[in-house]
């Protein structure tokens, strides 16, 4: 029995299954068809089962059941009540109780925003403060320099560095100017011009992002083709 299981789940079996799955999905490239449809639904079932498995084995058992039952922390039973509140969404009469639960979840979710905002943006504001004129290195009065983040203005700045900084600040400001919604660009030509340049800069950046992503996406395919040729068909080594 265990031999059979081993054979059915051994390395070769995994590779064969993988190859069949891969080819089935790839049929979609030609057109939607019954093979794809079958594997799509099979995949969906596996995915939902996998999600369920993760929730049970990684959250509910170690974080809820074990503390509550094995370690005697009985108050975890309240979590069941909390979770149960969500299910009132199906009650016509007491629907609002689920709203209370959603309210708490939303509250917790938005509570992060201050930390998120500061953590992600303040270092970037500092990094945007770039000198625009070349200069030699110099010392600053004691007590100020130590706390200044990496972009120490004390280092010297070359002409090309200053130019780079100027480009950076120019793009940053024009792009920001594009995102003003309450400003009538038709009335203010200068601001409108800045916003238009901002949009061009955005398109340029998007092009660059697209270009740099191609590499990643091709890599995925390379991984798959390698799998099919080397692991499955064994025609390359």
């Amino acid at each position: 029995m265990s031999d059979l299981l081993h054979l059915l789940t051994g390395e070769r079996a995994i590779i064969w299954a993988g190859a069949i799955c891969t080819l089935a999905i790839y049929t979609f490239l030609y057109r939607e068809n019954v093979v794809y449809r079958v594997f799509e639904h099979f995949y969906l079932g596996l995915a939902v089962g996998y999600g369920l498995f993760l929730i049970v084995s990684e959250v509910l058992i170690p974080k809820w059941w074990v503390p509550m039952w094995d370690q005697g922390q009985w108050w975890w039973a309240f979590a069941l009540v909390g979770g149960g509140m969500f299910y009132f969404i199906y009650s016509q009469k007491h629907n609002w109780i689920s709203r209370l639960a959603f309210g708490i979840v939303m509250g917790l979710a938005v509570g992060f925003m201050f930390q998120d905002f500061a953590g992600n943006n303040f270092p970037k504001i500092v990094a945007s403060l770039k000198p625009l004129w070349p200069h030699h290195s110099y010392a600053v009065a004691a007590g100020t320099a130590a706390s200044i983040a990496p972009h120490t203005p004390q280092a010297s700045l070359s002409v090309s560095g200053a130019l780079n900084n100027a480009v950076f600040v120019f793009v940053l400001l024009t792009v920001l100017s594009y995102f003003f919604f309450s400003y009538d660009y038709n009335k203010h030509k200068a601001a409108g011009g800045s916003a238009r340049i901002g949009r061009w800069m955005l398109m340029f950046a998007f092009g660059a992002m697209f270009g740099s992503t191609v590499m990643a996406r091709m890599s995925l395919l390379i991984g798959r083709v390698w799998f099919l040729l080397a692991d499955w068909l064994r025609v390359v080594h």
């Binding site: 789940t9 993988g18 799955c21 891969t22 089935a24 999905i25 790839y26 995915a47 395919l221 991984g223």
Partner: peptide
Amino acid sequence: PDLFAFATSGLFFQLDAAMFSLIAFFI
């Protein structure tokens, strides 16, 4: 663990990888 390893490494992760790599064609 064998059957689970097969269900994930042989099926689920493979389907994941195949679906993910479709992007190469679409790009």
